[in-house]
Simulated assay, not measured.
Amino acid sequence: MGEAYQIRNQEMPYFLTFQVVGWADVFSRKIYRDFILENLTYCRNTKGLYLFGYVIMTNHLHLVVQQKDGKLSEWVRDFKKFTSKKLLQIILENPQESRKEWLKMIFTYHAKSNQRSGDLQFWTHEIEHFIKRHL
């Protein structure tokens, strides 16, 4: 993460935005939105995540979160890594997904310009965030 994207105070609530590469409209499908909601529930129940609010848009997420143990950066890393791998798998193995080839082309294109991504990239590596001192 560059200087502008560091979470400086790990104990504070943050407003975070996670963006799908190429602004691909992945979350226009219920199956992918449900996967994100299931993972947020899991993180609340087992990873010490306080979820104050969220919005799932067609191509990005907005979250207001805090991590109980003051490890918000670790949570962001783990959440993005797990959800990207699983969403790519679900999308590419979904026989009902009519946009599979188009999405794969977007994920492949963006991975080529980023050494950390492997063959496919789902999330952008930047995250936008703002400290919310009073909720």
Rank of each mutant, 00 (worst) to 15 (best):
L40R: 02
L92R: 13
R8Y: 08
L92F: 15
S28N: 11
K85C: 07
A24H: 10
M12D: 09
H129V: 04
S28L: 15
Q67W: 07
N94K: 05
I7L: 15
L51R: 04
L72E: 05
Y5K: 03
Q115G: 00
N39T: 02
N45S: 05
I91Q: 11
R29D: 14
H134T: 12
V64G: 00
E3N: 06
F107I: 14
L120P: 03
W123C: 00
V21C: 13
I90V: 14
A4W: 06
K30A: 15
V26P: 13
F122Y: 08
F79E: 03
G48V: 09
W75K: 05
K71C: 06
Q89F: 08
H129M: 02
R77M: 06
R33A: 11
L87D: 12
W102L: 11
M12N: 14
E128T: 05
C43Y: 01
Y32F: 15
Y42I: 02
G70I: 11
Q66F: 09
K80Q: 13
F52E: 00
E11W: 09
N39D: 07
I127G: 04
T124R: 11
E128I: 00
N59E: 08
E128S: 04
D78S: 10
F82M: 12
W23L: 11
M1L: 12
Q19F: 02
D119L: 09
I90W: 04
Y14M: 06
V26H: 06
L87W: 06
K104T: 05
K30T: 15
D78M: 11
Y5F: 08
G118Q: 09
L87C: 07
N39I: 04
H134N: 12
Y50L: 07
W23D: 11
S28C: 09
H125F: 01
F52Q: 01
I36S: 01
V21T: 11
F18P: 00
R8C: 05
R116F: 08
E128P: 00
Y5I: 01
T17I: 10
P13F: 04
E128M: 01
Q89E: 14
E38L: 13
R99L: 15
Q115W: 07
G118C: 07
W123K: 03
R99H: 15
K47R: 15
A4G: 04
Q19L: 10
S73Y: 07
R133Q: 08
G2N: 09
T58F: 00
N9L: 08
K81C: 12
N39F: 10
G48C: 11
L63Q: 00
G53M: 00
D25N: 15
G48H: 05
Q67A: 09
E126T: 01
Y42G: 03
F35R: 13
A24L: 12
K86G: 00
G70P: 10
L120C: 08
L16C: 07
L40N: 05
M57S: 00
R44M: 11
G118A: 01
L63R: 01
K81R: 14
L37D: 03
E97H: 10
V55Q: 07
I127H: 02
F15D: 00
S113F: 12
Y54N: 01
I106V: 15
R99T: 12
F15V: 05
Q19V: 13
Y5P: 00
K80H: 02
L37H: 02
F35E: 10
T58G: 05
L61V: 07
T41V: 07
I7F: 13
I131C: 10
N39G: 10
